[in-house]
């Protein structure tokens, strides 16, 4: 998981100064959650890897301009989730393009079922569920990240949860 705020500021500061090891610490603290969030929205491991990687390449490009008083995670997650939604929408428009990459499950049965039901939601609904329950943002923070009205976030959460509850019960 991501380090404390102080750790993170130090990583960013030293990474800006050119320290590969500190940049690696920042990368390893944030890559996993970013990759998982992207995967849960797009349900394609290769695409999720590309999305998380591209978000970090964007971070490299703007590292010198990054304001280290602010947390790195929300900025990264905004990029990741928006790109994941765009990717999922684009795939929905051309479903013939490629088969969904579903790797062999190594999860408890309940998780498998949860993922399958999550898959039935729209990318927009999946994104708010992932931001709320994987990355643990508040609805207000999700509204800021996705540039949506708070009421829209709440209603997507409610509908998403209602759907999951109904199907999993």
């Amino acid at each position: 998981m991501a380090g404390s705020g102080r750790d993170e500021r130090a990583w960013v500061r030293r990474a800006q100064a050119g320290s590969v090891s500190e940049f690696e610490a920042l990368f390893r603290a944030h890559w996993g959650p970013a990759y998982r969030a992207a995967y849960l929205v797009v349900r394609d491991a290769s695409a999720a890897e590309d999305i998380a990687q591209e978000a970090f390449l964007s971070a490299v490009r703007t590292l010198d301009r990054f304001d280290r008083r602010r947390p790195f995670g929300p900025w990264l997650h905004r990029i990741v989730v928006n790109r994941a939604i765009d990717w999922a929408r684009a795939r929905a428009l051309r479903p013939e393009a490629e088969a969904v990459d579903t790797p062999a499950p190594e999860r408890p049965e309940h998780d498998e079922e949860l993922l399958r039901e999550l898959d039935r939601l729209s990318p927009e609904h999946r994104a708010v569920i992932v931001l709320r329950y994987l990355l643990e943002y508040t609805p207000g923070e999700i509204a800021d990240l996705l540039e949506l009205p708070r009421g829209t976030v709440n209603s997507r959460l409610r509908r998403g949860l209602d759907h999951l509850k109904e199907r999993l019960e």
């Binding site: 990759y35 995967y39 491991a45 999720a48 890897e49 790797p103 062999a104 999860r107 994987l134």
Partner: peptide, 12 residues
């Protein structure tokens, strides 16, 4: 959901 891991995550 916090327990979730993508298979082959380490290689990725």
């Amino acid at each position: 959901m916090k327990r979730f891991r993508v298979p082959n995550e380490h290689e990725a």
